[in-house]
Amino acid sequence: MTTTADGRVALVTGAGGGIGAAIAARLHEQGHRVALLDLDGDAVTDLSGALDPHGRTALAVRADVTDPHALGAALRAVRTTWHAPDILVNNAARTAAGSVWDVTVEEWDAVMATNLRSVLALTRLCAPAMRERGWGRVVNLVSLAGQQGGTLAGPHYAAAKAGVLVLTKVFARELAAHGVTVNALAPAAVHTAAVARLGASAVAAAARTIPVGRMGRPSEVAALVAYLVSEDGGYVTGATFDINGGAHMR
C-alpha cells in the first residue's frame, strides 16, 4: 500500500482503546499523521504519547461526539495542527444492553447520538475539504448487530448501526465523483478489554459460536481499514465489509 511522502492526516474517533486504538496505531505505522479523538482524554493522551513522544505525528483530542460544538472545536484543532483530515474513521460507539420494551426515550436518543448522528455530523464536517482536494477516505465501523438485528448490545445500538450502513451508501454516492470513498466495516465479536471483562468462560462460549473458532483481533480490523484508506482502495466505495469469522455469510 502506498502513502504520500509525509502521510495523510487521519482522524479516528473512539481511539482511546480497543478497535479504535488499533486503527489509530496501524494508520500511524503506515506513515499517516493521526488525530485520536475520544471522550477519555487521558486514554488518547497516553496513546498519542506512545505513538509519537515528540507530538509531531500524533494528536490527542478530547471530545464528546454527541456535542456538535465539541466536534467543531476538534476539527479546528486538527486543522490548526496540520490540515483538515484526509481520512475519517467513525469508530466511536455506545452500547446499552436491555430489552426493546425497556429502553427509555432518553437512552434511545443518547445511543443514537453517539452511534449514528456523530457519523452524519463528522462526515459533513470533514468531507467538504476532501471533496475540494479531490481525495478522501471515510470508513464507518458498523456491526453484525446492524445487519442481523442482534440486541445483545441493545436494540438502539443495532438500529443505529443499521442506519450507519445506509448513511454510508448515501455519502458514497454523493462523493464518489470527487475522489472520496465511503465504506463500512461490520465486525462480529472482537477480543478487546471490554470483552475480556466478561470472563474467560463467557469468551470461550462466544468463540464456539463463530465458525473459525475464535474471536477477532483488533489488529485484523485495523488492517482492513488500512487497505480501504490507501491509494489501492480507491475503486471501493459504498461497500460493507464483513469481518466476523464466518458468523454471517452472504
Rank of each mutant, 00 (worst) to 15 (best):
Q147C: 11
A145C: 12
V166A: 15
G163T: 10
L122M: 14
T123F: 04
V182E: 01
A159T: 12
G150I: 07
A92T: 03
G150E: 10
P155I: 02
L116A: 08
R117Y: 12
L175H: 09
V105Y: 09
T151D: 08
K169C: 01
A177Q: 13
L175F: 15
A188K: 04
P187L: 10
T95M: 09
A194L: 12
A93G: 13
N91V: 05
L120Y: 15
S99L: 05
E106A: 15
V164F: 01
Y157A: 11
A92C: 07
Q147G: 08
T104V: 09
G134S: 06
T192D: 08
S143V: 02
L165E: 13
R137I: 05
M130P: 08
N91Y: 05
M130W: 07
L152H: 09
A97K: 05
V139K: 02
A186F: 00
R137Q: 08
G146I: 02
A188I: 00
L122R: 01
V170H: 06
G134V: 04
R131F: 06
V190Q: 04
G136R: 08
A177K: 10
H178F: 14
G163N: 11
A129F: 11
A172F: 05
M112A: 14
G150Q: 06
V103N: 04
Y157V: 11
R94Q: 15
A121I: 11
V182M: 03
V100R: 08
V119M: 08
A110Q: 15
A158L: 06
N140D: 06
R117T: 14
G163Y: 07
W135D: 04
T168E: 00
V119G: 03
T114P: 09
R137S: 08
Q148T: 15
L144P: 00
A110W: 12
A96H: 15
R124P: 07
V139F: 01
N140L: 03
A93I: 04
V89D: 02
R137P: 06
A193I: 02
L175M: 13
G150Y: 05
A113S: 14
R117P: 04
W135Y: 06
R117D: 12
L122G: 01
R173S: 14
T168K: 00
T168W: 00
A92S: 09
A189R: 10
T192N: 11
E106Y: 02
A110M: 13
V164D: 01
L167A: 09
R131L: 15
G154T: 02
A172D: 06
A153L: 11
D102I: 07
A127H: 01
G149C: 12
V180S: 04
P128W: 06
T123P: 05
G98D: 03
L116I: 05
